[in-house]
Write a protein that binds this DNA or RNA. Structure first.
Lengths: 106, 106
DNA sequence: TATATATGCAACTTTTCGGTTTCGCAATTT
DNA sequence: AAATTGCGAAACCGAAAAGTTGCATATATA
């Protein structure tokens, strides 16, 4: 089962789950109430999210609380970084053009 | 055809294509040489990337150059922002704990 | 003009994915 | 102890995705 984080966030329901549990851990039943899917479908999504370590489980009696593993989200940020460099450098180039134009105006 | 950017970057080959053309536009044939897929398969990926506007085409004679639309990448960054806030606030909390401990040491 | 090249597109196949239904198990509650 | 509740896992299904093959079209080149 090749579970990577990019595949995990590809599904809109999973992104919804991530947003939902970002601030507080929740049980599968509570999560499922927020979507138009059965608990089992949500459970499947939770499994995928758990497998790629985007989410962690905490057992409390017969309930299982799912919480976002925020550290893992940084991996996406890390991947984005190479492109951030590009758009920032382009912005700086634009900035230079603008300041050059300003200078010429003087 | 529901093409969203998250689905687009879910595929590893497509992420490879994005990385490849990030700095300079390339033709489908040139891109395909870098992967273990046929030109047609790559062409299909390019179509998906174009549909969600992650990539733009530039016609030059019988060749088509594909270039990354870096602005579109910012959408992912924008989505990440809500989580960035979370991990930054947690970091600050840790920071506070550390400085409190330091104070007590004194 | 005939041929080679660069490319997209459509048809087809195989695999993967998301969902539902059914079941089993463990922890509560009555 | 019996019934209820919370949950995961397996079996199954339809839809979508990813890849291949075969073709059509436009632009170069000989």
């Amino acid at each position: 089962m090749r579970r990577d984080i990019f595949q995990a966030i590809a599904d809109p329901t999973r992104r919804g789950i991530i947003a939902l549990i970002a601030l507080q851990a929740m049980t599968p039943n509570a999560i499922a109430e927020n979507f138009n899917s059965t608990r089992q479908a949500v459970s499947k999504h939770l499994r995928i999210l758990t497998e790629c370590e985007l989410v962690k489980q905490e057992y409390r009696g017969r309930e299982i609380y799912y919480a976002l593993e925020i550290e893992k989200m940084k991996e996406i940020d890390k991947w984005l970084d190479q492109y951030r460099k590009i758009w920032e450098s382009r912005f700086n180039q634009l900035d230079q053009v603008l300041s050059t134009l300003k200078k010429q105006k003087k």
